[in-house]
Amino acid sequence: MKMKTKIKSKMSRTFSGNFTGAYKKFTMSHMREHPTSPEAFLPKPLNECKVALVSTAGVHLKTDRPFDVDNPAGDHTFRIVPSDVSEQDLTVTHIYIDTKYAKSDPTIVFPLPQLKQSAKDGKIGSVSSINIGLNGGILDTALAEQDSIPKVAELLLNEGIDAALLVPG
Rank of each mutant, 00 (worst) to 15 (best):
A102V: 11
N158A: 14
R32L: 08
L53V: 05
I138N: 04
L61F: 04
R32T: 15
Q146T: 04
S104N: 12
K8S: 14
K123E: 12
G74R: 01
P150A: 13
G137Q: 04
L115E: 12
V69W: 01
K62T: 05
T36R: 08
K100D: 07
G122N: 10
L139D: 01
I97T: 11
R79V: 06
P82G: 08
T99D: 11
D121A: 14
T99F: 04
P111H: 07
T77F: 01
A153Q: 07
E159H: 14
A73P: 00
T36L: 07
A153R: 11
L165N: 00
K100P: 00
L166M: 12
T63Q: 13
V152R: 12
F41Y: 07
C49K: 02
N135K: 00
E48L: 06
V92N: 03
K44I: 06
K103L: 05
I138Q: 05
I124S: 03
I130V: 11
D105L: 06
T27K: 07
T27E: 02
E48A: 11
P150L: 13
I7K: 06
L139C: 01
I130T: 12
A144F: 10
G122C: 12
G21E: 09
G17Q: 13
Y23L: 14
S9R: 00
E39H: 12
D98W: 02
V69T: 15
D84E: 13
G137S: 15
P66L: 10
F26P: 00
V54K: 01
S129D: 15
T5A: 13
F78Y: 15
H34A: 09
Y101I: 02
D68K: 08
F67R: 03
K24T: 08
L90K: 06
I132A: 03
L157R: 14
I138C: 08
E48V: 01
T93L: 09
G160K: 07
G17D: 09
K24C: 03
G122E: 08
T99S: 12
D105C: 11
H60W: 00
S126C: 04
T5E: 06
M11V: 15
S83C: 12
R32S: 12
L143E: 13
L53G: 07
K25I: 14
N158E: 15
S83L: 03
V167C: 11
K116G: 05
T20N: 02
H34V: 11
F19S: 02
D105G: 05
G58Q: 10
H60K: 09
S12K: 10
K8F: 06
L115K: 08
H94Y: 09
R79Q: 09
N135I: 00
V51C: 03
A153I: 09
P43E: 12
H60V: 05
D64T: 02
S37L: 14
P82T: 10
K62M: 02
I97Q: 12
